[in-house]
């Protein structure tokens, strides 16, 4: 579905953003693109949808070259940007104007998402708060039924109940032929939502792994003292004792803590990455 081979990208030659990025994404999955601020997550997504052009390497998305920005390609790719400006019009008028550009747009799905978010359809866009406008945009993005949906920091500006609604909407709208890539530095927001983790660091993807594979190899536990467990790879002080990430030698079932995992990878790369190198 998406194939990036030896992709390099830089805004200017002196400061590379992406170097030798190789990535294969399959349909029917939700990918979480994680990384620190300014590491190049947005640039990677913009390369995938043709808003930025790679300086070298190849990028193929749904059989198209994104940099050509053919309408047939753009009809199948929808980007939810981090910053946006909505036009001064009603939601209805917005849909009447923008939806016809997407042949697979579903008004029913849009209506359903709006209801989940609790936004009345008759509202005028300028009368909505920034967070509410973002919910309209999220609803529109999902209702386009685009085969690739890219979301750049989608939970920024959403309050806590809205983040829960967001997870619910996303989880209920993925089709088999569709992929969703969610880029965020607020990794906790993606808990129990994503199928596969992509971690961008040092200008390249350092880890691409399914959640099931991560919990197979690592266990996430709460312990009262660090002596209770064999030497963990990573630990953090918690309200009651410690939260630890350890090698899962006994095939324990544990629920992955996305934030813990991300912090563990960032601080203990040398110990964690070899576990997943294929």
């Amino acid at each position: 579905m998406i194939s990036l081979q030896h992709l390099h990208f830089a805004y200017n030659k002196a400061v590379p953003i992406l170097q030798d990025v190789n990535l294969e994404l399959s349909p029917g999955r939700i990918y979480g693109l994680l990384g620190k601020n300014g590491v190049g997550k947005s640039s990677l997504m913009y390369n995938m949808c043709g808003l930025l052009f790679p300086s070298s390497g190849s990028c193929s998305v749904l059989g198209h070259t994104p940099s050509r920005r053919d309408p047939a390609f753009l009809q199948q790719v929808c980007l939810l940007p981090e910053d946006f400006e909505m036009p001064a019009m009603s939601i209805d008028q917005y849909i009447r104007l923008y939806a016809p550009f997407y042949p697979a747009f579903s008004s029913d799905a849009f209506e359903g998402h709006l209801q989940t978010f609790g936004i009345p359809r008759q509202q005028s866009l300028p009368a909505l708060s920034h967070g509410q406008q973002k919910k309209v945009l999220i609803s529109f993005t999902l209702a386009t039924n685009a085969r690739l949906i890219l979301m750049d920091e989608p939970t920024n500006g959403l309050d806590v109940p809205s983040k829960r609604q967001f997870r619910k909407v996303i989880a209920g709208s993925l089709r088999e032929d569709q992929s969703i890539v969610i880029s965020t530095h607020q990794v906790k927001d993606l808990d129990s939502l994503i199928d596969e983790v992509l971690i961008l660091e040092d200008h390249r993807i350092i880890l691409q792994e399914a959640i099931s594979s991560i919990t197979e190899k690592l266990s996430f536990r709460q312990v009262m003292s660090l002596e209770e467990t064999e030497a963990p790879i990573y630990s953090e002080g918690a309200l009651k004792g410690y939260a630890v990430v350890a090698v899962n030698r006994k095939a324990e079932q544990s629920r992955m803590d996305m934030e813990m995992f991300f912090n563990a990878v960032m601080t203990e790369k040398e110990k964690i990455l070899p576990l997943f190198n294929r």
Binding site: G50, L79, F84
Partner: peptide, 18 residues
């Protein structure tokens, strides 16, 4: 002229000729 509007404009499924 502005980044948010440019993203929306460039992601709209229309060709440069249109």
């Amino acid at each position: 002229g502005s980044k948010p509007q440019r993203i929306q404009a460039l992601m709209l499924p229309v060709s440069a000729l249109e």
